[in-house]
Design a protein around this nucleic acid. Structure first.
Lengths: 115, 115
DNA sequence: ACATAATATGAGTATTAACTCATATAAGGG
DNA sequence: CCCTTATATGAGTTAATACTCATATTATGT
């Protein structure tokens, strides 16, 4: 059993294990959102949003693109968004729910743990 | 967007976000393993194993069953094991790999993040 | 009842992660 | 060049989590 793999799996789960980071990811959804928009949507402080954006960006879960004074963040892999929407049964944009309704066993398992 | 759901999702990810807890879950696999066997398989100290078993048990991810002086732990939902095996591409028992090879998008996404 | 093996737990320490504050950098407009 | 807005970052604090040690509990055999 390779220790490296366990570590990287634990790292991925750790990135997703904070409610504020999840809020931020949900706020971005499948669009490109500037930091200001994320702050507005989440009601978190600017510093806290930037603080959480860092590990999400550095791990590669989020992409950035600067346009003038704004930095736009987006979820690198749309499937991550589908996965979270599917797990939570709630989408920032209602129409996302359709395409996100995964019915494979892993999804069913995880959904069981949502209260 | 319901805050409760985000919290419970974060909690589930948190349970899976520690490499030692993953080691313990992998050590159990799809069988029933006594604490002694888990200690032996993981080379972690007795106290540390019991320490990590507690939240896994209390959250319901693991089941317990006492037989004489031994307490046997098992993974409550076999799909969790499939999910982890599928993500890591490594199984304690080789034959598990077959049935664990999920090809749905969420799995492909997560697998991308394993180094 | 005592000795031993298996497991759990309370209390303390240490490490890490989350958060805040002040300040820095970057861009655009006057 | 200065001023304003947008974002990032270093340093410090607090809070949570991982770990250790000593000891408690539960069960079994004698």
């Amino acid at each position: 059993m390779d220790e490296k793999i366990l570590d990287s799996l634990a790292r991925l789960f750790k990135l997703l294990s904070d409610a504020n980071r999840l809020r931020i990811i949900f706020a971005i959804g499948k669009e490109k959102k500037s930091v200001s928009e994320i702050i507005e949507a989440t009601s978190l402080s600017q510093t806290l949003v930037s603080f959480h954006l860092r590990p999400l960006r550095e791990s590669g879960l989020l992409n950035t693109e600067r346009r003038g004074p704004f930095v736009y963040y987006s979820v690198s892999d749309p499937v991550l968004m589908d996965l979270l929407v599917s797990l939570c049964g709630v989408s920032p944009k209602e129409e996302l729910k359709e395409e996100a309704n995964f019915v494979c066993p892993p999804m069913r398992f995880m959904r069981k743990w949502m209260t």
